[in-house]
Amino acid sequence: MRSPLLSPRWLGIHLLVVLLAAVCVAGTSWQFVRAFEPDREVITNPVEDLDGAVPLSDLLEPGEYMHPDFFANNAVRATGHYDAEAQLLVPRVSGGVGGYDVVVPLVTGEGTAVTVNRGWAEEGQDIPPVPEGEVTATGWLLPPVRAEGAVPVDVSEGQVGRIATSVLVNEWDYRLYEGYVILPAQDPATDSLTPVPPPEPPTETKVNWRSLSYTVQWMMFGVSGVAFWILLMRREVKEARSRGERASKDGGTARGGEDQPAAADS
């Protein structure tokens, strides 16, 4: 006897359930990944960020505290002129080679400036002059280097131990913006220097509870659909078996009724 679950109607139901299961698995997987991704509002693409750089003055005022969670790694731009005579070197080892970060104040207004890290130079390397006249520097805003994260070094004249506003205010007669700006490779101020790499997207994850709730909903919907499909199949098989038993019983009754008259005639 052919299974009732192989009828055209049931083949269509099977196909529909397979499609439903595939959609639910995909939806569950997608929402689960989103639930444990870094916050999409802070994930950055450094190249694209430069196209949307905002004026530094829109984020901070000179001397204002910079909250790293709110302002760090933002693409910013600032217009002014470099104070070449105030340029300083910050000792730093890169790839096992000794050298210096080259920092210079970009004067943005009367008595105000922002620290710009032009890039890294190997020890003994000639450092090119900064561009003259008015410039617009576009780069990424980084928080000051903390004292506990810096390696103590003996610095000479024209050098400082770390890039931090609290250190640089003792060297420069400006009201400084908190933090400092690193420049992309195409900026003229980085000429022949090794640009500091742009900040990486954050690696820590935050639970997105809305996406997590969607994950549960997709999973429950898929499980419910499969469970309903199984119940329908069991009911269909049970009804087909009942119909078969009734048909068999009715057939036996009919045969028994035909035999009785023959016995009476004899």
Rank of each mutant, 00 (worst) to 15 (best):
P152R: 07
W140I: 01
E48V: 08
L20R: 06
E132N: 09
E85W: 06
E122C: 02
G111R: 13
S266T: 12
W30Q: 13
V223R: 04
G244Y: 07
R246C: 02
T136P: 12
G52D: 14
D39I: 01
V130E: 14
Q87R: 14
A75W: 13
L60F: 06
E258N: 05
D259A: 15
G124M: 09
I163D: 03
E204V: 00
E236S: 01
N45Y: 11
E41Y: 04
P105F: 04
P46T: 05
A227T: 00
F71D: 10
D101F: 11
M220E: 02
V47H: 12
S57N: 11
R118G: 13
P261T: 04
Y214G: 11
A147K: 02
L141M: 09
L16I: 04
G149Y: 03
L59N: 05
V160K: 04
G95N: 12
V23S: 14
A262C: 05
P152L: 06
L59V: 02
A137S: 15
T194M: 14
Q31E: 01
G27T: 09
S57C: 01
M219S: 14
T44W: 03
E122N: 03
P46R: 08
E239K: 10
I230N: 02
Q125W: 01
T138Q: 09
L106C: 14
V130P: 05
A263D: 11
G98T: 07
Y100T: 01
L232K: 09
V196M: 03
T194W: 06
E37F: 03
G256K: 13
F32R: 09
F70C: 04
G139F: 07
I13F: 15
L168T: 01
G80L: 15
P188N: 11
T115R: 11
A53Y: 13
E204G: 03
V17W: 06
L193T: 05
E110C: 04
D39S: 11
R246A: 09
E41W: 06
L183S: 07
N170C: 04
A189R: 10
S3W: 08
V207K: 09
T108W: 11
G257I: 06
K206L: 10
R234H: 03
